[in-house]
Amino acid sequence: MAATVFAAQGASVAAVSTTVPAVKEHLGLSATATTVLIVAVALSAGAGSFAGSAAIRRSGPVAAMRGAVLTSAIALLLIGWAPEQATVTAGYLLFGLALGGIDVSANTRATAVEHHYGRSIFASFYAAWSAGGVTAALLTAGTARLGWPPAATLTAQAALVLLLALTLRAHPLPAAPPDPATATGTPPIDLGRGLWIRLAPFGVVLLVAYVVDSTVSAWSTVYLHQTLAAALSAAPLAYAAYQVGTVTGRSCADHLVRRAGPAAVIRIATLLTAAALAGMAAAPGWPYAVLAAGCVGLGVSALAPLCLASAGRLRPGAAEAVLARLNVFNYLGVITGGAASGILGSAGHFRLAYAVPSALVLVLLLTARSFAPAQGVGGGVARTSPDW
């Protein structure tokens, strides 16, 4: 089930990101208004993350995931059929709330599964996220090629998310280990004042990773369309290539972590991401930018899963509370990347929007030593197949 929720979230994020130019043109939104909307999604996602944490404590992660996925589908319909700016703003805000709820509930469930298995498998869930993103991005490109309006495209995207939601089934983890991350009905656990300090290295990596992710996800379609003169049917291909890169990277990441250790994976991912972003900034045409975006996805793919898995192990019995706090860095990265890229893009400097993160990502080399060894994750041993 958890992998299905990650796929649904990836599809919904791709649906929103790849339809930004079409929605912008359809409603006549200015570049500033578009930037504000993207930042508003991140802000409301932060609120949704803490709301999702409360929902997990009250109803459990499965119910929280199901409700958040259904809400994201409704938000897609609202964005697609919005007749004016006020309605589309409400749609984006609702989507942000749902996104935050999915984040904390799905990551809590994934933490419990990894804790059960006793080895690194977190990146595999994010591979499902990326696969959903590829599917939705290609759907946007296909409907744009056919000349569909934004309402029809986002209706098709909502149908895809709903189809995934209908497959969700509650299957408890077998033989749950001590301190299960999915426990409900227990008193709140004192996380301690030092938690923020322990979260800081992971938070820095997550913040920079989502600066990169937001810059590519939210603005690559616009970058290709406005700066590199790509048609609306070709512009979403950079997002699709980015997600193909993340699928590939995340499919291999767990194996690499088990063989080389998380610190080495962080260093390799950092250098590849920096080089690929520089290539994207210097791309002479949109096909080159598509290729570079794929390499960015390959590099950045392991960063978020490793951060979330490491943070979830800090307090196994209160993973949802820890991850809700870590998500603050996530949304700060989305806000920073989305806003900065939008401002630079509206001023005609989209290339600079990719060159700056290329230098920023090198900071992550300093945090690699903070990642715990992948061996002994949760101290458990695989017994039977968990809820995927």
Rank of each mutant, 00 (worst) to 15 (best):
S72I: 01
I121H: 03
L314P: 07
L360F: 03
T155V: 02
N327E: 11
A40F: 04
V356E: 10
G10F: 00
H349D: 12
L366H: 14
A309P: 00
Q9F: 10
A141C: 09
A368H: 13
F95Y: 10
P201N: 05
P357C: 07
A98F: 06
A63R: 13
M65F: 01
P83R: 09
T153M: 09
A22F: 04
L139Q: 14
A128T: 01
G194H: 08
V361P: 08
S44A: 15
L291N: 05
L256D: 04
L291C: 03
R145I: 00
L291H: 02
L364P: 03
F125M: 10
P21D: 07
A159C: 08
A2L: 13
G378D: 08
A54K: 15
R315F: 00
S214K: 12
A218N: 15
A42R: 12
P178L: 02
A33P: 05
T227D: 15
Q375T: 06
S370F: 03
T273I: 01
T155S: 11
Q85E: 14
G147T: 04
A183K: 12
P174R: 08
A63I: 07
L168H: 06
V5T: 06
T140Q: 06
Y288E: 14
V296F: 05
A86T: 02
I197T: 15
T143M: 10
I343D: 09
L37H: 07
V88Q: 10
G185R: 11
Q157K: 01
A112H: 07
Y242P: 04
A293G: 06
V41P: 14
A15P: 00
I102G: 02
A235Q: 14
L352E: 10
L77Y: 13
A309R: 09
A68I: 02
A289Y: 01
K24F: 02
P150E: 05
A281P: 13
L195I: 01
A311R: 03
L97C: 04
V216I: 12
G96L: 00
L166R: 14
R315K: 14
W81S: 08
R57N: 13
G67V: 10
G312E: 01
A278C: 05
P177D: 10
V204C: 12
A276R: 05
G342V: 02
A283G: 09
G203L: 00
G28N: 05
R145T: 01
L277K: 14
F125Y: 15
Q85G: 02
L77K: 14
V134K: 13
Q243T: 09
D179Q: 11
T89I: 03
S233V: 00
T384W: 02
R193F: 06
A368P: 15
R259N: 04
L97K: 07
V381D: 13
A359I: 01
A209H: 05
G96P: 03
F95K: 08
A42Y: 03
Y210W: 15
V381W: 09
A152L: 14
H225A: 12
